[in-house]
C-alpha cells in the first residue's frame, strides 16, 4: 500500500515521546512535526537520544510513553508484524556502519529489500540495477561488501534504503564511518534525493552535513528538544 503524500503534508508527528531503558531516560517528552519533502537534521551531543529518536520513527523500538504517528499510523501501537510491514513499505534506513550482509553481493543486498515484499527475484534485481546506475556504482554490483570501500558500501546501503520507494528516508550518522571524500559523495547523494522530493531525517554530529543537506535543524540535549532552526540551503 502506498499513501499519496503531497509536499507540505505532515509525514511525522511525535507527541510527548518518552523512552526509558531501565532507569536511563533516553527521550523525555519529545514533540516534533516533519512535513513531506523536508530534510531535517537532528543534532546533539553523544547520548542525547538522537539515535533513539530515529529508532522510534523507524519503528525499530517502541516509546515508553507518548505517540509517534507516521503517515497517520500510530507506530507504537502496531503489532510486530505490523511494524515489519511498516518498515518495509514506508521507511528506508541508512546506518553509520552500513549493516550490509557480508554473504550477499552488493546487488543481492539491495534486491533483498524488494524481495521481502514479494517482488520476484528478476524484477527486484532489475530495480536494484537501476538504482546502482543512478548512484554510480553499477560496476560494483557483483562485489561483496568486504571488498567495497566505505563510500561504496554506504551507496549500496542508500540504494537498499530506496529500493521500496519509501516515503521517509532515515539516516543515522551516514557519513560517520567515511573519509571526507566519501562523506562528500554521500552528502551529494542525499541532497539530490531531497531535491527530487524525498523526505529525509538525518541524525548527525557533522554540522557540515547538516548545513549541506538539511532545511531544518532540530537540537537535542538530555533527551529533550532544545532548539529548532531553519537552515539556508548551501551553495
Amino acid at each position: 500500500m502506498v499513501t499519496e503524500v503531497r509536499t507540505g503534508d505532515t509525514v511525522v508527528r511525535l507527541d510527548g515521546v518518552r523512552k526509558e531503558y531501565g532507569e536511563t531516560v533516553a527521550l523525555d517528552g519529545v514533540s516534533l512535526e516533519i512535513r513531506a519533502g523536508e530534510a531535517v537534521a537532528v543534532m546533539g551531543p553523544s547520548g542525547c537520544g538522537k539515535s533513539t529518536l530515529l529508532s522510534m520513527i523507524a519503528g525499530l523500538d517502541r516509546p515508553s510513553a507518548g505517540t509517534v504517528v507516521v503517515h497517520g499510523e500510530k507506530v507504537g501501537e502496531l503489532s510486530e508484524k505490523g511494524l515489519a510491514l511498516y518498515r518495509r513499505r514506508r521507511i528506508g534506513m541508512i546506518f553509520q556502519f552500513f549493516n550490509l550482509i557480508d554473504d550477499l553481493s552488493a546487488l543481492d543486498n539491495v534486491a533483498l529489500a524488494a524481495q521481502l515484499t514479494g517482488t520476484a527475484a528478476r524484477q527486484a534485481r532489475r530495480r536494484a540495477l537501476e538504482l546502482f546506475e543512478e548512484l554510480g556504482i553499477a560496476d560494483r554490483r557483483n562485489a561483496y561488501p568486504a571488498v567495497l570501500s566505505g563510500g561504496e558500501r554506504q551507496r549500496v546501503a542508500v540504494a537498499r534504503a530506496l529500493m521500496n520507494r519509501p516515503a521517509l528516508l532515515l539516516a543515522d550518522e551516514p557519513t560517520g564511518a567515511l573519509d571526507s571524500r566519501a562523506g562528500e559523495q554521500v552528502m551529494d547523494l542525499l541532497l539530490d534525493l531531497n531535491q527530487i522530493g524525498q523526505t529525509l531525517i538525518i541524525v548527525t554530529h557533522d554540522e557540515h552535513l547538516a548545513q549541506r543537506c538539511a532545511s531544518r535543524l532540530v537540537q537535542l540535549a538530555d533527551g529533550r528538544v532544545t532548539g529548532e532552526h531553519t537552515l539556508e540551503p548551501s551553495a
Binding site: L60, R87, R88, N99, L116, T117, R160
Partner: peptide, 8 residues
C-alpha cells in the same frame, strides 16, 4: 538489519 528493512 533484516528486521530494519521489513523482515517480519
Amino acid at each position: 538489519m533484516l528486521k530494519s528493512i521489513g523482515m517480519t
